[in-house]
Simulated scan of single mutants.
Amino acid sequence: MLRDDLRTLWTAPRPPDAPARVRRDWVLLAAGLAGVALEAALRENVVWRPVAVVLAVWLCLLPLWRRTRPLAMVTLAFGSVILLPLASLVAAPREPVGLYTGAVVLVLVYALPRWGSGREIVLGGAVILAAFSLCAVTDETPPGEQVVGLVFLLLPGLIGAAVRFWTTARERQWEQVRSREREQLARELHDTVAHHVSAIVIRAQAGRVLAGADPSAAVEALEGVEEEGARTLEEMRAMVAALRDRGVGAELAPPAGVADLERLVRAPGGRLTVGLALDGEVDTLSPAVDAAVYRIVQESVTNAMRHAVSATEVAVRVTAERDTVRVSVRDNGQRTGRGRDGYGLAGLRERAALLGGTLRAGPGAEEGWHVEAELPRARRESGAHSRPRR
């Protein structure tokens, strides 16, 4: 089992979509160069000052590529660190060479397990340990302090590994949320279409009976409609059966929609007053959009009931325009951060994206929490969506 774990670590790929550079990289570079300048100007006991300054500037530049080239940056940084003890062995006096600003290499130690592949982590870890071992041999630091130094050196790597594990686990949770929302949407589409196909089959059967024996062509056409409708219904049931918790023989009924919002907001047990306003032709929406509107209002009102601080009412407005449907849910509670933007809203965003729309949620400009969604009356292909990486 240990061998399998080591093989898994060795073959682990890099995390996807690693950003090349972000704003904080330039802040780190500026802070590092400023530290080099101050230390070179103010510190008196610097051995080989020009060499130490050049090395420190070099180490400050390497973190710019720490996400895209983690192993190469660790090798260059700690390879340079290895050369200094070797040089100090043949030079006098035998004192440590370098500036304290060189501690920026700890950022590279963090980046190696955070952004590197399994192979890069193993090889980079070997380079780091080799550099530390050489420094420990050439230095006269007591063993206890060397152990503390090793822990201090490896701690950023442990933090990077923990952040990577946490991020991976969260990505899996997001994927589960998206999968559940897709499954729910597939169920609703299945129920809606199956409901209509069932009606087609029934009408075809009635048409065959009413046609009688005289119009044989009509009877033949009705038989074809009946056969095709029954086959379509059977194939759809088989296709979606694996996604359903209930059996394929369950009662087929359209999912809840805009027509059910009145009952939703009047449901007893809520601590808030919910006001509902419907504008436009909301009774002619497509089944998928109709169900999506209901789910958005249901989730948003439920979140307000559970989490709105000092709120007394929730305002729900559904506006059907010529090409779009707009949904707005706002409470009048205290203005808070994005802590309530959880997996439920993530699922709603996925549903809106599948239908070609958008959904935004966050604190209002003056009070409360606002959820705003815009859905097309006719489905459009949704674009690619991404989240920023840490």
Rank of each mutant, 00 (worst) to 15 (best):
G32H: 07
R351I: 11
S286H: 06
A365P: 08
S382W: 02
A217F: 09
S386A: 13
V265H: 00
L29K: 01
V90W: 11
R377S: 03
T232E: 03
S386W: 12
R335D: 09
L150M: 05
A217P: 07
L89K: 06
L158P: 02
G79T: 03
L99S: 11
E120A: 09
S198Q: 10
L9M: 10
G32D: 12
R379F: 01
R114C: 13
V274A: 05
P13H: 05
G149Q: 04
R23E: 15
V265F: 00
V22R: 13
R114H: 15
M236R: 09
A320R: 02
Q298P: 03
L6D: 06
H370F: 04
V258C: 05
P363S: 11
L354G: 05
E39L: 03
P70T: 06
H196Q: 13
S300K: 01
G144D: 02
G347M: 10
D5P: 01
H190S: 15
A72T: 14
E372V: 05
D331Q: 03
R3A: 14
F165N: 08
E313T: 15
A230N: 05
V127D: 09
G280K: 08
E234D: 13
E235I: 07
W174K: 14
A230L: 11
E39P: 12
R208Q: 14
Q298S: 15
G356I: 03
R244T: 11
V309E: 15
A218I: 08
R377V: 09
V51K: 00
G125H: 04
A72I: 06
V104K: 10
M305S: 13
I296V: 15
G347E: 10
G79W: 00
V240I: 10
G333P: 04
V289T: 13
V54G: 07
R69P: 08
A199W: 06
T336Q: 15
G333T: 01
Q298D: 15
R335L: 14
R360L: 12
A103Y: 14
D5M: 13
H190N: 11
